[in-house]
Amino acid sequence: VSVELPAPSSWKKLFYPNKVGSVKKTEVVFVAPTGEEISNRKQLEQYLKSHPGNPAIAEFDWTTSG
Rank of each mutant, 00 (worst) to 15 (best):
V20Y: 10
K12R: 13
K13A: 03
L14R: 07
W62E: 01
S2C: 13
N40K: 04
N54L: 04
E59T: 06
E59A: 09
A32H: 00
P17N: 09
H51M: 03
G21D: 11
E4Q: 10
Y16C: 06
S50M: 12
D61N: 07
P55F: 05
K19I: 14
P8T: 04
N18D: 10
K25L: 13
E4R: 07
A7I: 04
V31W: 05
K19F: 12
S65M: 13
G21K: 03
L5P: 04
E45D: 10
A7H: 05
E59D: 10
N18T: 10
E4V: 09
G53Q: 06
E37H: 15
K12Q: 08
G66Q: 10
K19E: 11
V23C: 15
P33E: 02
P52S: 05
K42M: 12
T26P: 15
K24T: 15
V28N: 01
K49S: 11
Y16S: 06
P6M: 07
A56Q: 10
P55S: 03
K49G: 09
A56S: 14
T64H: 13
R41L: 12
K25A: 11
A32P: 03
S10D: 12
V20N: 11
L48K: 01
A7V: 05
K24M: 15
V3C: 12
V29S: 05
G21A: 08
V29D: 00
P8D: 04
G35N: 03
G35Y: 02
E45R: 10
P8C: 06
V20W: 11
L14D: 02
P17D: 08
G66Y: 09
L14M: 09
L44S: 00
S65W: 09
E37N: 10
W62I: 01
E4P: 07
S9T: 13
S2F: 15
S65D: 13
T26V: 11
Y47L: 00
L44T: 00
S9A: 14
V29T: 08
K13F: 03
S9N: 12
L48Y: 02
W11L: 01
F60S: 01
D61P: 02
K12L: 08
K42E: 14
K25H: 15
E45F: 09
P6I: 07
T64P: 12
I57T: 05
S9M: 12
P8Y: 04
K25P: 13
L14G: 02
L14V: 08
T26R: 12
V3M: 10
G21F: 03
K13H: 02
E27A: 14
R41T: 09
A32T: 07
G53L: 05
S39Q: 10
T34W: 02
G21T: 09
F60V: 03
R41A: 12
G53N: 10
I57K: 05
K24R: 09
E36A: 04
E59L: 08
K42S: 14
G66V: 12
V3F: 11
P33M: 02
H51V: 02
P8R: 03
P55E: 03
S22T: 11
V28R: 00
P8G: 05
E45M: 10
L5H: 05
S10Y: 11
I38S: 00
A7D: 04
S10Q: 14
G35H: 03
T63D: 08
E59R: 04
K12M: 07
T63A: 11
V3D: 06
S22G: 14
S2M: 14
V1E: 13
S22W: 06
V3Q: 08
E45Q: 10
I57H: 04
S39V: 14
L5T: 05
P6Y: 08
I57C: 05
A32M: 00
K19P: 13
V1P: 15
A56K: 10
S9C: 12
K25W: 14
E45Y: 11
T64C: 09
Q43M: 13
W62C: 03
K24D: 15
S50H: 09
I57W: 06
F15M: 10
S50A: 13
K25C: 13
N40L: 04
S22Q: 09
P55A: 06
